[in-house]
Design a protein around this nucleic acid. Structure first.
Lengths: 104, 104
DNA sequence: TATATTATTGGCGTTATGACCAAGTATGTC
DNA sequence: GACATACTTGGTCATAACGCCAATAATATA
């Protein structure tokens, strides 16, 4: 589970899902990576039991499974304060691409 | 920081340090890996600001930097309950070797 | 039915991680 | 000084993770 959180894009996904459910396109736009990459990140989070997906037409709406995830993140962020060690090494910053429409 | 926690051996180290400060040999014995491997794990945790080391003679005593780490772990374990997704793939189980003496 | 939209899956190259061995450092002891 | 103990560092290899492309669902719409 920790492994699934240990990636900046996936952490961002979780944080976005704290606000509201999102479809893959929205998350992709925010992350600025290829949609296939984001889809795979979501699969990882799903396998870890952190998110759930629900199909609406051609869209996949992703949601946090429960508040405990949210609490956990708060706990981590609050607990460590400024303890961000930064990127550990060649942290990938995906090249930004065109945004998709992503409105349902 | 999350990355540094996202490894079973390092998580075990953190849990052991919650109980008491430990030297590398003790941790190595508990983990069952090569001492060089454990030393490097400790270096990772140190770089992430989770542990601190203090030299006592030939021993290096490792300690948690603060309780917040401990709290965070509790928060994670409590929060997710049985949400352990298990090893994500070829999770390395290091081959066990002779234990060192490790008593100071 | 043809086409567009949204997302997933498989494959591939690149990079990072992890485990061990060998060698080196630092300290304590004979 | 010689040796033992405790640990760290550098190197190498195997494996895992990541990111993108191509191809493939699945659904909606003209």
């Amino acid at each position: 589970m920790l492994k699934s959180l240990a990636h900046p894009s996936r952490l961002l996904i979780i944080e976005m899902l704290e606000e509201a459910p999102r479809c893959v396109g929205e998350l992709t736009e925010a992350i600025g990576a290829d949609i296939t990459t984001v889809s795979k990140h979501l699969a990882v989070l799903k396998r870890a039991g952190l998110v759930r997906d629900e199909k609406h037409g051609t869209y996949s709406e992703y949601t946090l499974v429960c508040d405990c995830v949210s609490h956990m993140i708060d706990c981590i962020e609050g607990g460590m304060g400024s303890g961000d060690a930064g990127p550990m090494k060649g942290e990938t910053v995906p090249r930004r691409k065109k945004a998709c429409k992503a409105s349902r």
